[in-house]
């Protein structure tokens, strides 16, 4: 699921190849973009022009869809993605402390900068709250200590 340091060009090639499967399908923009997201773990910004061209939409239409649905994470390629759910069940379970610990683990001088920290919308696994996802895989019953261990092991 991760980009494994693959180049921006390689990611874009995957984007274009994925999108082209959907050309000519009625109402396929949303599904095509989701497919990109699940192949790469994020949506490269250049996807806007690629989707507009290959699926015959205007740029604002593509941006409109990308910014409307909260599962889309438009951004730049990074080694790893760490997603933290902050909706109410995770919040009252201690998500704020976990977020702070991860932010600290990324930014501090002795920390590990190889991951991107993202807030994500509720994955509906609330009976195991709080949760974080490391490279799109969710881990429940999270604690500050375990979250720190997860990111310390990323390279």
């Amino acid at each position: 699921m991760t980009t494994d340091g693959s180049t921006i060009e390689e990611d874009r090639r995957i984007v274009r190849e994925t999108l082209s499967h959907y050309s000519g399908h009625r109402g396929a923009l949303l599904m095509a973009l989701l497919d990109v997201q699940y192949k790469l773990g994020y949506i490269p910004e250049t996807t806007v022009e690629d989707a507009a061209e290959l699926l015959d939409y205007s740029h604002p239409e593509v941006w409109g869809v990308l910014t409307f649905y909260s599962d889309f994470k438009v951004g730049k390629e990074a080694g790893h993605f760490v997603d933290v759910c902050i909706d109410t069940p995770c919040h009252v379970g201690g998500a704020r402390e976990i977020w702070s610990a991860l932010e600290e683990a990324r930014k501090s001088p002795e920390g590990n900068p190889s991951f991107q920290l993202r807030r994500t919308s509720c994955p509906r696994l609330c009976s195991q709250a709080p949760l974080i996802a490391v490279d799109m895989r969710w881990h429940g019953r999270m604690t500050v200590e375990r979250a720190r261990e997860f990111v310390a092991g990323l390279d």
Partner: peptide
Amino acid sequence: EATGHAYICGEETALMESVEGKRG
């Protein structure tokens, strides 16, 4: 019909827009 999650799409007319691949 896979979707990208938007709370409002639980509302039925928004959901129909989403099924059409648009903003819901």
